[in-house]
């Protein structure tokens, strides 16, 4: 008994001082544990405290709840079907479905919406070596990364005739050489849709008309639109201007003009780029 006493003394002045931290009067049991399974007030004491004697022999009339129907009777058409069926409104307690549930999946995780991660060294202005495609081996300048995760690169076209083009980052080696493009910003209309292949205009074989020579393969030649030419020009201008600001502009131009290749006893995994 001795140890808890000073505690209560210390607590008592603290409670009114705080004022706010007072416990609510309702719902808090008056009885409390003294330890070792002994409670402060005995069962009898609590009986009196709660004035339970008042309620002995008292009964509240229970309000009758209307019973909810558990089954419903359904009419069934057709001959020799019995006419009606009684169907349970709720599932049985032990209900084991024989068929898998058809779950609707949220479509917010489709491939087109995946998070794209670009290699950290592939920043805007990086000189990259292309490894695949018809421009493989060329050294080009990275202009931006599109929402689809594809890199947008340009030769510049005047240097190595590589146009504005999309390419996956897998097919690129990022070098440590970087062109400082400053506050260059890609025009907004240069997005993924802009570069999407227009299947009609590409070099697919064109449908033959009646009476045409079957063996003559006819292909439509790709011609860049005026819009493309204008965009190519505007982007290249910024890149070439940035190159022109460098002290080693002549060398860098030659560098971008030349193609990458491996000599004997050169191993790309051992080389620095």
């Amino acid at each position: 008994m001795a140890p808890p006493k000073p505690k209560e003394v210390a607590k008592a002045p603290a409670a009114p001082a705080g004022g706010v931290a007072k416990k609510p009067k309702f719902g808090v049991p008056r009885n409390y544990d003294l330890g070792n399974g002994v409670v402060r007030f005995s069962k009898t004491k609590m009986f009196h405290k709660k004035a339970k004697y008042k309620f002995i022999g008292k009964k509240n009339p229970k309000a009758e709840k209307p019973k909810k129907p558990t089954v419903v009777v359904k009419q069934i058409g057709g001959e020799k079907n019995g006419g009606t069926r009684t169907v349970l409104l709720r599932r049985r307690k032990s209900f084991y479905p024989t068929q898998d549930k058809i779950t609707t999946r949220s479509h917010h995780k489709t491939f087109s919406k995946h998070v794209r991660r670009t290699r950290p060294n592939l920043t805007v202005g990086t000189v990259c070596i292309l490894l695949a495609g018809r421009h493989a081996g060329k050294r080009v300048v990275l202009v931006g990364v599109l929402p689809s995760g594809l890199l947008l690169i340009t030769g510049p076209f005047a240097f190595n005739s590589c146009p504005l083009r999309r390419i996956p980052q897998r097919y690129v080696i990022g070098t440590s050489t970087k062109v400082d493009l400053g506050d260059f910003k890609l025009p907004k209309h240069l997005n993924d849709d802009y570069f999407k292949k227009n299947k009609k205009s590409t070099k697919r074989s064109v449908k033959r008309k009646e009476g045409e020579d079957i063996f003559a393969s006819k292909k439509e030649k790709y011609v860049p639109s005026e819009q493309r030419k204008a965009d190519q020009k505007s982007v290249d201008e910024a890149v070439i201007k940035a190159i022109g600001l460098r002290a080693d502009k002549k060398l860098l131009r030659g560098y971008l003009r030349s193609a990458f290749g491996l000599r004997s006893s050169q191993y790309p995994h051992r080389m620095c780029f």
């Binding site: 000189v127 070596i129 050294r139 080696i173 070098t175 440590s176 050489t177 060398l251 860098l252 030659g254 560098y255 030349s258 990458f260 051992r270 080389m271 620095c272 780029f273």
Partner: peptide
């Protein structure tokens, strides 16, 4: 030589 970057290699060859 091992530390040379791609651009350095180009500079050397030129």
């Amino acid at each position: 030589r091992a530390q040379m970057t791609d651009y350095d290699r180009f500079k050397l060859s030129s």
